[in-house]
């Protein structure tokens, strides 16, 4: 029978190494730390004049995107290219699936072209699990966002950003603000922060944007931005989509910004050295004031840069080619 937590039998191989990266939930801390350590080493690669390493030479990676994305798709593409892999970008609005081909048929056809990895974004929660269940033995699946379920590489780039700026996680209070209900990013961040031992994970939103029983994922719930920000070391703002006004979740953008928008005044309630983060794309004046987004505490653009390093780390680890992965696995067998 299936139950939460057994996804690792799908995500990890017999030696406990990453095979697919579908969700942060249930992964051991050792794997998350490996990803961050490996990503640290790739940050340097991006800063060199020649930004390439030959780890995935000869491998073919398919970016299979069923939802539009600019940032995530391009950073995955850059990450694959910096690892010397060949990259195929498939945008579904112009492909066979738009003509009614099933996800499984699309996957099997692309596998028949001897591809090695799928980076998939899909509007349905669980889509990457579905692909992993049906993947050929040599093929790895990396989840680039499935429905409202998970966006594990985004969460890991956020963790890298936090670790590079704050060091250890254990004393940190992290506040996630906004549309938690529809956010796969928030779900993955919550799992990652708890696994890495963050001191406190807070979610801040009106009740209409909070999923039921969100406390059960290990969060403390606030409906007041002011109270929730008090003492926070990291403030993560989420994007608010305009459709939320139509579905009776919020009265107006104006009222939302008044109550939950991050302004300099509100930010002053957090710790003076609090980081401001956002997975992007940002809606200036809706969830965040420009002066904060562009201000000294904002690390929003750093997140984008670190996104490439994290995606390089995940891809190389899932393909068994990470510089440090084997040694680490050998050191700490589980």
């Amino acid at each position: 029978m299936n139950f939460p937590g057994n996804w690792n039998t799908m995500q990890l191989d017999a030696q406990g190494r990453l095979r697919h990266f579908l969700t942060v939930e249930g992964l051991p801390r050792r794997i998350l730390t490996d990803i961050l350590d490996t990503a640290d080493s790739f940050v340097v690669v991006g800063e060199q004049p020649v930004k390439k390493v030959p780890l995935l030479r000869g491998k073919t990676i398919v970016n299979l995107f069923f939802e539009t994305s600019t940032r995530t798709r391009t950073t995955f593409e850059l990450a694959a290219k910096r690892l010397s892999a060949d990259v195929l970008n498939i945008n579904v609005s112009t492909s066979a699936t738009a003509k009614g081909e099933s996800l499984l048929d699309t996957q099997k056809n692309l596998e028949a072209m001897h591809t090695d990895m799928f980076v998939v974004r899909h509007q349905h929660s669980g889509a990457s699990h579905f692909m992993a269940q049906h993947a050929a033995p040599h093929v790895s699946i990396v989840n680039a966002g499935d429905g409202q379920h998970a966006h594990p590489t985004q969460a890991m780039l956020d963790m890298l950003t936090i670790r590079r700026h704050k060091g250890a996680f254990d004393s940190l209070c992290v506040a996630i603000v906004g549309d938690i209900l529809h956010s796969r990013v928030a779900r993955s961040q919550i799992h990652a922060l708890n696994t890495l031992g963050a001191g406190e994970v807070r979610v801040i939103a009106p009740r209409t944007l909070l999923p039921v029983d969100i406390e059960s994922l290990g969060t403390r719930v606030f409906t007041s931005l002011g109270q929730g920000l008090a003492g926070a070391d990291v403030v993560i703002m989420l994007r608010l989509q305009k459709e939320r006004m139509q579905s009776a979740l919020l009265p107006s953008e104006h009222e939302y910004f008044q109550r939950y928008g991050l302004t300099e005044e509100k930010l002053a309630l957090a710790r003076p050295d609090a980081l401001v983060m956002h997975p992007g794309p940002i809606n200036r004046g809706v969830e965040i004031a420009s002066s904060v987004a562009d201000g000294p505490q904002s690390v929003i653009l750093r997140q984008v840069s670190y996104g490439i390093a994290v995606r390089m780390a995940v891809m190389s680890m899932a393909m068994g080619r990470s510089p440090g992965a084997r040694e680490t696995a050998a050191k700490e067998p589980e």
Binding site: P4, S125, Q148, H149, A150, P211, V212, D213, L217
Partner: peptide, 13 residues
């Protein structure tokens, strides 16, 4: 069902 499992899975409840 809308509950802790739907919250965890991100499936609309």
């Amino acid at each position: 069902h809308e509950g802790s499992v739907s919250t965890r899975l991100g499936l609309p409840g």
